[in-house]
């Protein structure tokens, strides 16, 4: 099997990215989760597989039911990008909500200072 330069480059990048993901997961860097690792393996593994074995796209097109392997690849890419955007938006919303909680708790501290909770007195 003869390989073009672009196939070799994509494969090397994909291997590096997957290796880095596994390394992060094992060493516990950047809040690793099994889901993050799986997404990384599927995305980069998929890219490497399509680059090294282009005929996969024909099978993919048959499975999806779309004529033309390129269309199938583009559609799959769109779905993946959409899922990633959804996940990003969810993360942003979560951070926004946590930020509001932190700001609220800080504001309410001033109220507690104004009206300190009565301390429990020890019986004499």
């Amino acid at each position: 099997m003869s390989l073009h330069l672009y196939q070799i480059v994509i494969a090397i990048i994909a291997i590096f990215m997957i290796y880095q993901g596994i390394d992060n997961y094992i060493k516990g860097k950047h809040h690793p989760t099994i889901l993050k690792l799986l997404v990384r393996v599927v995305v980069w593994g998929g890219m490497a597989a399509v680059a090294l074995f282009p005929m996969i796209t024909v099978t993919l097109a048959k499975i999806i039911g779309i004529e033309g392997n390129l269309n199938a690849v583009i559609l799959t890419g769109f779905i993946l990008v959409f899922l990633m955007i959804f996940k990003l938006l969810s993360a942003i919303e979560r951070v926004e909500s946590q930020l509001s909680d932190v700001v609220r708790n800080d504001a309410l501290k001033n109220l507690e200072t104004r009206n300190p909770k009565p301390k429990t007195r020890r019986k004499e």
Partner: peptide, 15 residues
Amino acid sequence: LRHKINRGKGAAVKT
């Protein structure tokens, strides 16, 4: 009470 940064009307009402 003061929010140190602007969080929006909903957040302020909740506080």
